[in-house]
Amino acid sequence: MSQAQGEIYDLGYQHYDGPRGGRFQAVWSLWINGFRTILGLGRGARAKILPVLMSLVVIAPSAVFLVMSAIVPIAQPASHAEFYEAISLLLLLFSAIIAPELLIPDRRNGVTTLYLVRPLTSFDYVLARWSAFLGVVLVLTLIAQVLVLIANLLLAEMPWDYLQENWLDIPRFVLAGVVITVFVTTIPLAVAAFTERRAYAAAFVIAAFVITTPMSALLSMEWCQWSTTYTVRNGEVSEGDSVEECGRITGDYAKWFTLLDVGRAPMHLINLMFDDAEDFDLVDDGVDAEDEAAALVTELPLAVPIAWYAFLVLGPGCLLLWRYRSMKI
C-alpha cells in the first residue's frame, strides 16, 4: 500500500468541471443499479438462479403454447387472460423472493444513508427501486403475451382477419400486464420495507397468499343436496318430489369471501378486461376453482373488485413511501 501512495503525489487531484445531471440522473443510476440487483448481474452464478427461474416460469406456458401451435395446427386460439391465470401465482412467488433484495441489503449495510444524502429524496429512491422491479417483471410478462399473440396468429386461418377482429387484445393485454405487475411488485416491496431479514419478508408474503386461497375457496364453497318434502294427509305420509337445493356455504356472504383470496385480486380485474367472466357457467360441474371464483366475483358490483385491487396496491404503496420518509438514519 505504501507503493500505491508513492504514486499518488505524482498524479494530483483533478477537479471535475464537466456537466452534472440532477435528480433525474440520480434516479436513473439507481434504476440501473436496481435492474442489475434483480438480475444478479455483477454477482456470482448463484445470484442468477432465481431471476433465470422466474424468466423461465413466466415465459414457459406461452412458449409451450407457441411451439404446440406451430406443430399441431388443430389447436384453438387461446385467451390472453388464461396465460395470466397460469403465471399469476408463480409471478407472485418470485416477486416475493426477489423484492427483499432491492431494499433490505441497502438498509442492513447502511447504503440507504449514502443514497439519502445525495441529490434525491426518499420518494425518488423508492420510486427508482420500484420502477426497476416493475420494469423487469412487466417486460417478462409482455414477452409471454406477445408469444401468445404470435401463436394465435399462426393458428388463425386468416391471420390478418384475426388481427383486425382482435386488435383490441393488444392494448388489453398490455394493460392487464401493468395491472398484474404493479400488484406483484408493490406488496412484496412494502413488506420488505418493514422486515429486517430477507427470508422472512419473502415467507410472509407467500404465506399470506398461499393461505388465503384455500380459505377463500372454503368460505365460498358450493353445496348441493337433495331434499324431499313429505306431506302428511289422513295419517299417511306421502313422499313429494325430491328437489335439489343448491347454495353457498356462507350464503350471500360467499361472493364477498372470494375477495379474501388476495392473490387473485389482479385476476378479477384482468377477467373483467377480457370479458371472460361472462363465459363461465355457474352450475356447470366441470368448472375448476378459479373459474368458479371468477364467476362469483361478477355477482359483486363492478366497483368492488376494482376498489379492492386499488386498496391492495395503494395501501402498501403508501406504507412503503411513509416508511422511507420517516426512517431514522
Binding site: 471535475y16 440522473q25 440520480a26 443510476s29 455483477g42 454477482r43 445470484a47 441489503p105 445525495r118 441529490p119
Partner: peptide, 21 residues
Amino acid sequence: CLPDFMTASEFLSHMAQVSGI
C-alpha cells in the same frame, strides 16, 4: 455503509452517478 457484493470501482462509479456525474 458499504454494499457487500459490489466492487469498489463499480460502487464509486455508481455513487458518482447518483450525485449527478
